[in-house]
């Protein structure tokens, strides 16, 4: 179950992973994009932690809403509206739940719906939607594992991109991991690493 403390911790672990791997994320975005995914996201997650540390967080929903607003206003690339929308959907989905009964799966499910609507991508288009779709299904069956996250991220490699910058490359996008899927992998690895939520 999510609490203010463990949700904030999850986001802190995600921020740490994004910061540590900022260059690697830029590298993933170089052959099939514009090389800025790590920088974009790190700008957002850093601002997000600043906001979270300053805010008076009364509920899990407050945490996601505060996180979303920072991401939306600071990222400057596709990752902004996408992660921003995902987090806003988590804020909405957790809002009306009893404070001691907020499970992670329904939140991810709501986020995925938001992502599909925001970007217009479908599974198989080689976007972060692929990872969120797989994780959503995995979570329905039980606690998420690292292997499941890896498999989801790796699944984007053979795909041909149909959305986002990589789609302009057509078949040349095949054989590369999707950068947004790699960062989404960090997000879900952080959930597992937090250890208490699921």
């Amino acid at each position: 179950m999510l609490t203010v403390a463990n949700t904030t911790k999850w986001l802190q672990l995600f921020t740490d992973q994004v910061n540590t791997n900022q260059d690697a994320l830029n590298q993933y975005d170089t052959p099939i994009g514009d090389g800025d995914h790590g920088s974009n996201l790190a700008r957002g997650t850093t601002a997000m932690m600043d906001s979270l540390n300053k805010a008076d967080l009364k509920s899990v929903s407050d945490v996601w809403k505060t996180a979303a607003m920072a991401i939306i206003s600071k990222v400057g690339g596709a990752a902004g509206p996408l992660y921003g929308t995902a987090f806003l959907e988590m804020a909405k989905a957790s809002k009306d739940r009893p404070a001691d009964d907020i499970a992670v799966q329904p939140l991810i499910d709501a986020s995925l719906k938001g992502l599909l609507k925001r970007g217009g991508a479908v599974p198989g288009d080689k976007t972060m939607v692929d990872v969120w779709t797989d994780v959503d299904a995995d979570l329905e069956k039980g606690p998420l594992t690292s292997d499941q996250v890896k498999t989801a991220v790796e699944s984007t490699k053979p795909m041909e991109a149909k959305k986002g910058r990589a789609s302009y490359l057509g078949k040349d996008s095949v054989g590369h991991l999707d950068p947004g899927s790699v960062s989404s992998g960090f997000f879900f690895e952080s959930l597992i690493q937090e250890g208490e939520i699921q």
């Binding site: 939306i72 690339g77 596709a78 902004g80 509206p81 921003g84 929308t85 970007g119």
Partner: peptide
Amino acid sequence: SAKMNLDM
């Protein structure tokens, strides 16, 4: 992202 941010 221009479109996604416009939508927002």
